[in-house]
Simulated assay, not measured.
Amino acid sequence: MNARLLAAFLCLATLGTGCIIVDHGGDHPNPPPTGSPGDVSFLWTFGAEGRCVDVPDVKSIKLSIPGETLDSNGFYACNTAGVDGITLRNFRAGTYSYTLQAFDAYNKVLYSSSGSFTVNGNKQVRVDMTPDGKTYAYVSWYFPAKGSYSRPTCSQANVTSIKASIDNGEWVSVDCLDGTDGDGIPTPYLEPGTHTLQLIAYGYDIQGRANMPLYNLQGTLTTQRGVDAPSVEFRFFELGGMSVRWDMWDGTNYRNCAETGLTSVVLNLLDLSTNKVVYEGEGLSYDCVAAPVVNQFMKPGSYQVRIRGYVGSTMTYSNENNMTTLTVKAFEQKKATDAATVLVMSKQ
């Protein structure tokens, strides 16, 4: 249970105030199933913002339950006698739908949520309202075992900062410790549905260089309107790097880009642990003079490197008769100034 909702429930249970008698207003639109009548206690929060005290712009709450006539037309204070919620008395057994809206002083809807509940005795309905019906989730993470640490802390993993992106959006900085403590950190507000998440953890590589990518994770999370924000935990994976450059051999001499006329160089990697290529299609295309090229976001392992040189759309150089195997080690990162692995392409 969300800690904020638990606190609201305890407050309600202790004070026993904020209670309204419901007038059922005639026949219920759907005959109720066999069951016990009861009181319905609504407890509300406001997404990542928290409780009523955290959203001072909220001046009133409107509760609508089709088929039911509520006191004050369903308008209540955000907090009643210390409780972020309200109790409605004497509901027949049955299933009901509801809508909650939070209004500001100008009758603008700031937060809302909808859902359903079933009465068979007393019932608590915990509702997390979000802006315009949007959703969010709590995200937490952990790092793979390292040395004697089965789940290393941020400092034990040498992580100093983390950046995150949702749905390929803007990269933002998040606190590493926040993601390893409790429920994690709330995402920005999202449309209901499935979303992609990517995080990169930076710190000191095995050479002691700061702000190098050490871990990453990619995953998905799913949110639903009218449902408590899910808590999703992800595992980071180690990163290593490579740096490569190329030479062209015409059978007699080594040639540079200008001498060969190469307009592009296309590189791909075969992951020897899976026997699958790393990059879609033919691979990554570079200008011939772009070398050395660096990739700092690689899974540790062994890769066979294939490289082809093109003049326009015609391949004129390749290393396919003598491909190089490259080993990527965890936390061993590369910069453009580091020594690069040399790939030799022969004239075709």
Rank of each mutant, 00 (worst) to 15 (best):
S97C: 10
A201P: 02
T135E: 04
R92F: 13
D175Y: 12
R151G: 01
D27T: 14
G26A: 12
G226Q: 00
T14N: 11
Q333L: 07
P144N: 06
A3D: 13
V127D: 08
D39P: 06
I162D: 01
N30C: 06
K334Q: 12
R245V: 00
N2D: 15
G312C: 07
R255T: 13
K299E: 08
A164M: 12
V342A: 11
Y189F: 12
A291S: 03
Y111W: 12
S116A: 03
T314N: 04
T274A: 06
G18W: 02
E282K: 00
G121S: 01
G182R: 08
G121V: 01
A157H: 09
V289R: 12
L88G: 05
V109M: 04
R245A: 08
Y202G: 02
Y106H: 12
S36Y: 14
S173I: 11
G18M: 02
N322Y: 02
V232M: 00
A201R: 07
A201K: 04
S60A: 06
T260P: 03
T223F: 01
N79V: 15
V174R: 06
Y303P: 00
I307L: 15
R255Y: 10
Y189A: 02
S41Q: 13
Y279T: 10
Y76K: 05
V40Q: 03
N211R: 12
L15P: 00
V174I: 15
R245N: 14
D104I: 04
M298T: 05
T314L: 08
L5Q: 13
S161F: 00
I206A: 11
P144G: 03
A210Y: 06
G26H: 13
T135M: 06
T337D: 15
Q348I: 14
Q348G: 12
G241D: 09
S116F: 03
K108Q: 14
S116K: 04
R209G: 09
L214C: 09
E320Y: 14
T263A: 00
A339P: 08
T252E: 14
T180E: 13
D271N: 15
D183F: 05
V232N: 02
I61A: 01
L177N: 14
G193T: 00
R209Y: 10
Y106M: 12
R126C: 10
L214R: 07
F117W: 01
S313E: 12
N321W: 09
A81T: 04
Y254S: 12
M212R: 15
S41W: 04
G121I: 02
M129T: 03
F103E: 05
K299S: 11
H28R: 15
